[in-house]
Design a protein around this nucleic acid. Structure first.
Lengths: 211, 211
DNA sequence: TGCTCATAATGAGCGCAGTCAGTTTCACGG
DNA sequence: CCGTGAAACTGACTGCGCTCATTATGAGCA
């Protein structure tokens, strides 16, 4: 008998992995070529070489097929080397999100559809999205904590609340950006920068603050 | 002959108005009783006493039927007397949105579905939503301007940017609130207050600000 | 009162996403 | 090597949202 806890890629698993890859590829090609609405799940299944029903063993619904397509790319975009020491909080965060903006700008309508579904959390268990969101949140949290550490953000900051708020602001900003053509990366990032700067500075009159 | 620019309610218009009312009522009852997914457009049409096709002369799609249901109520909720002079910006805004929170809390799943569709702007022309959004934005803008006038918010504030940001934050906050039961009004408003306070104070270290 | 025609209403029909009872595959123990 | 049961796969099928060729209505005019 062979080892039991070795690379667990017996035939079964390998086929599943392969199938998932083919589904992702097929969906990506069709979505990019014809758009989300015009692409049928049957077409995806056919191109992936599987039956219609099989598709839904890998994907909860059509939206999730799109999520599959974006999955790896979003991860990669968020990975981006966190170069840039000695930058302001705003500049640093804008920088780390540049990759994401570039990715989204490539297919605005698809990205819009993809981004729209994220805020749901309905399907919190189905970890696919959760993980992605978690990574996104982690990037924000990281930059916030770093900025707090170096004294740029207030030391008594409720980090959790701040991160949630930033997350919300960024998501909606991305949404509006994608929804209003033309979708230009630099414009989006400029907007993001301005908004972040506003959040850092605060809406309140400086002299009144900290009453 | 009778006057020509008088109350323009000839028979035709009256019937349409009546039909719209019946659709709204039917949709409301069914959605509230069985939920959004479980309610079919055919059932709505039948209960409203019209043909399936007719429904779609009054409503672009099923989502818009839900919007029809919420329409008047949201307007009413936002109308709310703007009592409360001498309150902080945060307190005042929370106060003016209380009615909306109460409305939303009544049927969280439906409200979630309703709120989700708002950010679209795709259908910007179809003014139904635009108008609603506009009213919502107007409330925010009003409070912001009032706060600027009395010196609570910074005088050099970019009001447009601030309003957009507040709009975004509130929308997402409402969304998360509705998505995570139990949906309690007070909890939601407390969260809103905390978030607004953070935005007013700013994320930045006070001593550094206005460098 | 009757004629005309734009507008409103109809409901059978279409194409789709998603399901499920039946079939195939294949890991595993004998 | 075979037998077996669980897991993966299949595609005909269901029920849905929405459309569109056809029919009914009623406002305006003679």
């Amino acid at each position: 008998m062979d080892r039991m806890a070795e690379p667990p890629l017996p035939r079964r698993e390998a086929k599943k992995e392969d199938k998932r890859r083919r589904i992702t590829a097929a969906a990506g090609e069709l979505f990019r070529a014809h758009g989300f609405e015009a692409t049928t799940t049957r077409a995806i299944a056919e191109r992936a070489g599987i039956a219609t029903g099989t598709l839904f063993l890998y994907v909860r619904d059509k939206d999730e097929a799109l999520a599959l397509v974006y999955g790896a790319d979003v991860d990669a975009a968020l990975q981006g080397i966190r170069r840039s020491r000695r930058r302001s909080f705003t500049a640093a965060l804008v920088d780390r999100l540049r990759g994401l903006f570039e990715l989204y700008a490539r297919h605005p309508e698809l990205s819009l559809r993809y981004v729209r579904r994220i805020p749901t959390f309905e399907d919190a268990e189905r970890s696919e999205h959760e993980a992605r969101n978690a990574r996104f949140v982690a990037v924000i949290r990281e930059e916030v904590e770093r900025a707090v550490a170096r004294g740029e953000l207030r030391s008594d900051l409720d980090v959790g609340l701040a991160v949630r708020t930033l997350f919300a602001v960024i998501r909606v900003l991305v949404f509006s950006w994608l929804a209003a053509p033309p979708v230009r990366v630099e414009a989006g990032l400029r907007d993001l920068g301005a908004t972040l700067a506003l959040l850092v500075a605060g809406l309140g009159e400086p002299t009144l603050r900290r009453a």
